[in-house]
Amino acid sequence: MPDLVIETTGLRKEFRTRRGGLRVAVDDLDLSVPAGGVHGFLGPNGSGKTTTIRMLLGLASATRGTMRLFGEPVPDRLPAVIDRVGAVVESPKFSPHFSGRQNLLLLARSIDAPASRVDAAVETVGLTGRDGDRYRSYSLGMKQRLAIAATLLKEPDLLILDEPTNGLDPAGIREIRETIRGLGAAGVTVLLSSHILAEVQQVCTSATIVGNGRLLASGNVDDLLDSGTAHRVVVPDVVAARTALEAAGLPATTEADGSLSVETDDPAAITRALAAGDLWLTELSPLRPDLESFFLRLTAADNLATSAREAR
């Protein structure tokens, strides 16, 4: 097993509601983040991502469960590892009248970091040439990159980013994406919390998907996408094939190109159902979903299961 930078076991967080009820924000979550690369922490808004991050950083207490950063139990041993962790969880406070560089220099002095780290951080996040501009003139994307630069002053081994592209325009999203990709390539482990799947797929090497506070899937991104059960079916008579498949308990969806999409973990069942109707395949191949499709299918199924439990 690879070295784990973040590990949680049975992590749970409960809140009391105003009406005296109980809300479970994180439900027995097992999270494993290997060292190196960019790990996506993915889930719909309200799925417990930020709450989990706050517990890891000692900003919220867990109801039960265990957490480790670099093998050290937290929050008990958090002071021993916190210097190895950088995080952008909430909007950082910078002086609007100072330049980006001046803000970073003030932060560097406060943690006894050499001024040379400011130059390195500015270059890493792509603010060279704009670091002399006042912070108040920065776009939202530039402000986010400055926030990341601030975390890099202590040269962290782990960088935690909570929804770093929220509110950004396409240009700002691209800038943050390139910054994150560069950090992962440079050896920093990045935990990227997000619900924007199209962006995440371009930078993440591994991912954990959560829904309603629970773990739904985790692993290498390519392995997750290869684990799907959808198949592309091409036949001369689409209408007859769809009827035969559905009669065999294999619901089929007609795609825009005239092919059929069939969900099953037994592709031989497709050939049997079609052969029974004297229908012959032109093509049968696995469909590899993109991360967004995989995510939506998982979370939709989880929402249905959650509704069913609550209705009992």
Rank of each mutant, 00 (worst) to 15 (best):
L4F: 11
E7K: 15
R12Y: 03
E14T: 06
F15E: 00
R19V: 00
R19K: 14
R23G: 00
V24Q: 06
D27I: 03
D28G: 13
L29I: 04
D30C: 10
G36W: 07
V38H: 08
H39M: 13
F41G: 00
G43L: 09
G43Y: 05
P44H: 07
G46W: 13
S47C: 11
G48Q: 06
G48C: 07
K49W: 04
T52W: 04
T52Y: 04
T52C: 05
I53W: 06
G58S: 09
A60C: 11
T66W: 10
L69F: 05
P73H: 06
V74T: 02
P75S: 08
G86S: 07
V88Q: 09
V89A: 10
E90S: 08
S91V: 11
K93V: 13
K93D: 01
L107Y: 09
R109I: 00
I111M: 15
A115W: 05
R117C: 06
A120S: 12
A121T: 00
V122T: 01
V122D: 01
T124Q: 14
T124S: 11
L127G: 01
R130S: 12
D131N: 02
Y135K: 05
R136S: 14
R136D: 12
S139E: 07
L140R: 15
Q144M: 14
A147T: 04
A147S: 14
A149E: 02
T151S: 15
L153K: 13
D157C: 06
L158W: 03
L158E: 02
L159I: 09
E163R: 06
T165E: 01
G167V: 10
A171L: 14
I173W: 08
I173H: 05
R174P: 01
E178V: 03
R181K: 15
G182C: 11
G184I: 07
A185R: 15
A186D: 06
A186G: 12
G187W: 11
G187E: 03
L192H: 08
H195C: 09
A198V: 06
V200G: 02
V200R: 07
Q201K: 14
S206W: 06
I209W: 05
G211D: 06
R214T: 03
A217T: 04
G219M: 12
D222I: 00
D226M: 09
S227G: 11
S227Q: 08
S227F: 09
G228H: 07
G228Y: 04
G228S: 15
T229A: 14
A230C: 03
R232M: 10
D237W: 11
A240S: 15
L250Q: 02
P251F: 10
A252Y: 04
A252C: 10
T253P: 00
T253G: 06
T253S: 13
T254V: 15
G258R: 13
D265M: 04
D265W: 07
A268F: 11
L274E: 00
L274A: 01
A275N: 11
L279G: 00
L284Y: 08
L287S: 03
D290T: 05
D290P: 08
L291T: 01
E292R: 15
F294D: 00
F295I: 02
F295E: 00
L298D: 00
A300C: 02
A301D: 10
N303C: 02
A305Q: 10
A305S: 13
S307R: 15
R312P: 00
